[in-house]
């Protein structure tokens, strides 16, 4: 069996774990504990994913490693919040509206999406946004904007200026898929996975009870 080609930077958070341990995704994603990241050879991976609920203080100390990975042509995906200690952008928190689909189904948090991007191609608008965690108030000059909210604030952006491709969004597909309380996230995450490594997962998200209560070390 092939080794996973996507490194999922792991902050010890259970949703990161449940996502990467699911049989549907375990052959695609390799958990890399954030405190082990400095000693990890990222060249073994095609892509690196930094999920929501990450430790951005530690990631700040790994800045050179992350940009070296990009310079080598890798893809880096950042979701949720981020930090200007390592990303040339400014993220700000905003109230989370996760009930718009009940109260105002015609007013989604994201109002503009570039559906020509490979991650978004073929997605229905609802599959392209469930809720957002904040917005970017500054992004690099060379960035392409892929999604905005109704206030025109930046939700998702991408740049190739560092060598590989850096894709950042305030959506949280990995964490929410790990939590398994939104039932339609396979659409987004499977497109994302295909973009990250060139192969698309199939089937349903399953959980093996034996993975819970198991020692990490």
């Amino acid at each position: 069996m092939k080794n996973p080609e996507i490194a999922l930077v792991f902050n010890g958070v259970w949703s990161h774990y449940s996502f990467a341990m699911s049989p549907k995704y375990s052959s695609f994603y390799q958990l890399v504990y954030v405190h082990d990241l400095p000693a990890t050879d990222l060249s073994a991976f095609k892509s690196v994913v930094i999920p929501f609920q990450s430790n951005h203080a530690v990631l700040g100390s790994c800045r050179k490693q992350l940009y070296d990975f990009l310079a080598g042509g890798g893809k880096l995906f950042v979701e949720g919040d981020s930090s200007a200690t390592w990303l040339d952008a400014v993220w700000e928190d905003r109230p989370v509206n996760n009930y718009w689909w009940v109260t105002h189904p015609d007013q989604p948090p994201v109002t503009a999406t570039d559906f020509t991007h490979p991650v978004y191609q073929g997605l229905m608008p609802r599959h392209a946004c469930w809720h957002t965690h904040g917005a970017y108030t500054r992004v690099p000059d060379h960035a392409r904007i892929l999604q905005r909210n109704s206030a025109g604030e930046i939700i998702t952006w991408e740049t190739d200026a560092y060598g590989g491709t850096l894709l950042a969004t305030t959506l949280d597909p990995i964490v929410e898929h790990g939590v398994q309380q939104i039932t339609h996230l396979d659409h987004y995450v499977d497109r994302l996975t295909a973009w990250l490594c060139g192969a698309q997962p199939e089937g349903a998200f399953a959980i093996d009870e034996a993975d819970y209560g198991r020692s990490w070390n």
């Binding site: 259970w14 398994q180 959980i207 009870e209 819970y212 209560g213």
Partner: peptide
């Protein structure tokens, strides 16, 4: 998800 809580286990489902 790791076994550090004495006597009690949490299981995702």
């Amino acid at each position: 998800f790791t076994p550090w809580v004495p006597g009690n286990r949490w299981v995702m489902d």
